[in-house]
Design a protein around this nucleic acid. Structure first.
Lengths: 232, 232
DNA sequence: AATGACGGATTGTCGGACAATCCGACGTGA
DNA sequence: TCACGTCGGATTGTCCGACAATCCGTCATT
């Protein structure tokens, strides 16, 4: 029955997603946090969660552990796990850390593979249509984050991408109740398009500067939106 | 009894390290991995570890979870946790990711605070005396890593530093059986000193270039030392 | 030689248990 | 009134034992 022992494996694109209970619990919690169903600062009690979600305490503990070292939750030894509250300093740090990674990506524009560059263009298009078609807040932020992710993608380094994702996760906590994104989404599109134009013209340093400027602005408006005082 | 309600708190430098059992287990495992007592690829069985260290399986599981998302161990679902084996691609990725972070630090030389700069100088001195006094392998690598850490420290971003530490941890697995560091440690000192000289002259871009060159070389010699083929 | 069945080993998840720790309220004494 | 000691409840940290699900290697079967 073995027809055509053809050179490359005849099975392509076959994957099965093993989902452990712990993973599902963690996913559900993350969703709740990012959607703003649970506010920063609220304690995540083990027993309460356990019988709310119908799983054992061990499972909850494990899920909480992952959330904690993703940074979206914080553990106070012997006192429990809380949804992380971002201080102004934290927001600042996350934004600047992201800036480092994104700028590193942008600087590799020419060295990067064609598909990585294409991913940037696609992300921008997606965001643009999302804005024009007046999509929901969730989709808008997703599309916006995708752009910035694609910048980091230019590094073509799995680890840097993972690190950037981790930073994003931290910040998404605050983003939950903020739809300031929507208000100036037109500006956002313009800014990103300008950046891409610079890149297409191979003006890498110009693009890097533009990006840094854009991110500084983002940091400020995020602090505003969260009603936090600005750091020096 | 309150003498001098002085402005700032009269209690400085008072901290108590709460060490949970899980933490100690994780520390012990990490030590064993970094010292090369356990080779990459070996399975970390839960029960075996549990009664080897006289703690419960739950505790071991939790410790293993942290090792896994530090990247020094890898979980194969339903098949256990193994000490991570680095592929050439991984080594490459880790090194280049580190390069991004370190270069970002070096580029901020002027913007950084004086104490961050001083930390770099101190790290270099420490490394130099370590080499000259013919210190043990462990101390040598520690001092060497400290230098590179101090570069990242120039970003003055806790998160970037943490990320760099995580990357370092991954790579230290391979470093265990390699003392190639010792052979050309004289070169290392020279290279780092040259870099610092450039910085002191405010030639930031020159230093960045020097650092990137240094790291590429480091990547190559690490691959050699691990007997791994070089990536393209 | 490929397929299928079996058994052992290990993980994933569960439930319960208990000491240690922490927090807040309450009471006591100066 | 304020500082301090005590007590009780709540919650975490850690342990134990259990069991189904999964995986791996082996062996028998075709």
């Amino acid at each position: 029955m073995a027809a055509e022992p053809g050179r490359s494996s005849p099975f392509a694109g076959l994957s099965l997603e093993h989902s452990s209970t712990v993973d599902r619990v963690a996913d559900e919690l993350r969703r709740a946090l990012f959607d703003g169903d649970i506010e920063p600062g609220t304690p995540l009690r083990e027993v309460a969660l356990a019988d709310a979600m119908g799983v054992s305490r061990s499972t909850i503990r494990e899920a909480l552990a992952t959330l904690v070292n993703e940074g979206v939750a914080t553990r106070a030894p012997n006192r429990g796990v809380y949804v992380t509250e971002l201080s102004p300093g934290d927001v600042r740090d996350v934004c600047r850390s992201r800036a480092v990674l994104e700028v590193a990506g942008v600087r590799r524009w020419r060295a990067a593979g064609e598909e990585s560059r294409e991913a940037v263009r696609r992300a921008l298009v997606d965001f643009t249509v999302a804005v024009q078609s007046d999509a929901g807040r969730a989709e808008l932020t997703a599309a916006h984050l995708a752009i910035h992710r694609s910048f980091v993608g230019l590094t073509e380094s799995p680890r840097l991408i993972a690190l950037a994702d981790a930073l994003t996760a931290e910040v998404r906590l605050g983003l939950a109740k903020v739809d300031r994104i929507r208000r100036n989404s037109a500006d956002q599109v313009a800014s990103h398009r300008a950046l891409l134009n610079l890149l297409e013209r191979d003006d890498v340093e110009g693009a890097a500067a533009e990006l840094e400027h854009h991110l500084e602005h983002a940091e400020d408006s995020m602090l505003d939106a969260l009603h936090l005082p600005h750091a020096p």
